[in-house]
Design a protein around this nucleic acid. Sequence first.
DNA 1: TATTTTTGTGCAATCGATTGTTCAACTTTT
DNA 2: AAAAGTTGAACAATCGATTGCACAAAAATA
Lengths: 344, 344
Amino acid sequence: MSEKKRYTIQDIARRLNTTASTVSRALQDHPRISEKMRKAVKEVALELDYQPDFRALSLKTGSGRTIGVMVPQVDRHFFSTVLRGIDEVATQADYSVLICQSYESYEKEVSLSRSLLYGKVDGLIVSVASSTLDATHFESFGRKGIPLVFFDRVWEPMKVSKVVIDDYLGAVKSVQHLIDNGCREIAHFAGPQHINVYFNRTRGYIDTLKKNGLGVNEELIFRGVITRETGCETMQSILKLDNRPDAIFSSGDYSALGAMLCAKEAGVRVPEEMAFSGFANEPFDAIFDPPLTSVDQHGIEMGRQAAALLIEQMENKRADFVPRTIVINPDLVIRKSSLKRNGS
Amino acid sequence: MSEKKRYTIQDIARRLNTTASTVSRALQDHPRISEKMRKAVKEVALELDYQPDFRALSLKTGSGRTIGVMVPQVDRHFFSTVLRGIDEVATQADYSVLICQSYESYEKEVSLSRSLLYGKVDGLIVSVASSTLDATHFESFGRKGIPLVFFDRVWEPMKVSKVVIDDYLGAVKSVQHLIDNGCREIAHFAGPQHINVYFNRTRGYIDTLKKNGLGVNEELIFRGVITRETGCETMQSILKLDNRPDAIFSSGDYSALGAMLCAKEAGVRVPEEMAFSGFANEPFDAIFDPPLTSVDQHGIEMGRQAAALLIEQMENKRADFVPRTIVINPDLVIRKSSLKRNGS
DNA sequence: TATTTTTGTGCAATCGATTGTTCAACTTTT
DNA sequence: AAAAGTTGAACAATCGATTGCACAAAAATA
């Protein structure tokens, strides 16, 4: 019954006894096309529901107006807000956004890069997977003239534009807040240290302790604790310690949460006996009991900046483009879980 | 300094004083190419980090081996699990997945469809936006011979393959469970009724009440309650009622949660005085106090089935393909929030 | 040695669009 | 009415890759 066909510019030409070039020009309102022909072409185009073929078009023009985004997982609130920011700016500039997920896997990341390199995207925005220790696979993009922008989890050695938050500052704000609230023995859940963001959070923690004249107790730094499960397990060991810490500064909300729930379960009063502070400001932070203090990373803004940076570079194709790094200030969102001093 | 160029098959040919066709064949291990030439070509290709141009390739071959997925939002747990299922099957079959978000907006959905129609994808998997009342814009895909599969939120009138869960059954299981636990006045938070999934959940609720000889009280059906905010507000009004319901069956977890937290805040004992049951089995359901009973939709499985269905249709390009609908059985995940009878 | 077969490459068309060039048919100018 | 200018549309090349066909040179067969 139905024709099931994608009509091309040639089909239109055939029906009107003319050529593809004339049709192409008519559709573009070229001045040298007669009014009559223009109308006829547009009419047939409409009738056939003609859409130009993206592949042919981008092959000819050299750009498909498509931005690729590669993130570890889209269902993490932070990444999804960044996506929103990117989408916003990209749409405005008439670019499509192609999202893909590495699922934190190095292999997947490499194979995705390869497939994107085929010419599916004209520019790429990336936050690297946690299992990626070496991100040289991204260097091909530079070699092929495909602009690249890193955000959040960046591959420092590469000379490309980056958008990051000041993780160090976020940690400082967080730990200082805990100290100001009377905490003196602050434990820390650290993420994988080869990832810049986690490394910087840990640095901020250590420096802030020192700055306040508090000693750094290596035994209170728990490494690789980022999931709810590990948070919970770590709390179990903490509860067995002779002198329990009076606060936890976690590099992530999931582990902070896991630990907090475990502690409550074990009868620890939060925040009176133990205060908690996380990182990422996940939406569920606000609805826990008690609500979790956390660091907001302004994802939408990061996304906007990353997209703007990328588009700028794509449009100004000069070889002398100088990569920039944009640093965004994080905000500490104070909630009950850390208010040891006063319950306000 | 750096060349900043994408090398083509022609560049390789030029270096070896041969032609593009020979290079193309050499790279494909065509039998009629000499061992020597083959080696030489591959060597240069490697040296130049040659990657075939996706656009040229898919223009010629007619397929870019790309599946498009359009969902309302990627940061909803259900959708992100479906994505995982799709990704799994697609990757295995050597397809790339292109994700895009409608953000529940009809306009965005229409404009995305248009851009995908350009030939960016060879097949499409869709869950429609809540603001979409008329999804005829998807019919172009059929007309152009681009296979389409709906999942979860489907546009019933279209004759295409669909993957859904039995929302009716999910609601039945949920409400029956509440009744079995001694609830007699069960209120219902209903979603937008023009969306099939919400409509069916409400039907399941009504039918189950009737089946158990319980009357349906229209005043206990609250429409359009899907966010945490509206859930909370609705609970406020419920608490003012003369005869409060003893349970809430919500069509969504967010509103169930909002309501549950509000009720607890107001001093209602959960589940003793009021039981709660949601829909979607969001990951946070398990970590609330009390944990929320909910209906699991088997997202990964839905994604797998949808992708398999789509790929089958794409590869078997016969015009006589008959659309299928796959119905997946939901499971009720029982947690403390609904266990009124016994605290087990 | 003459003829057939095999082997290795090049030529040219094609996918669907864009765009510079050519060229006939009208208009306008003188 | 002849020269010059304008208009409308066709021709052909191009983007990067694939692939049927032609055709030498080399190898195998007679």
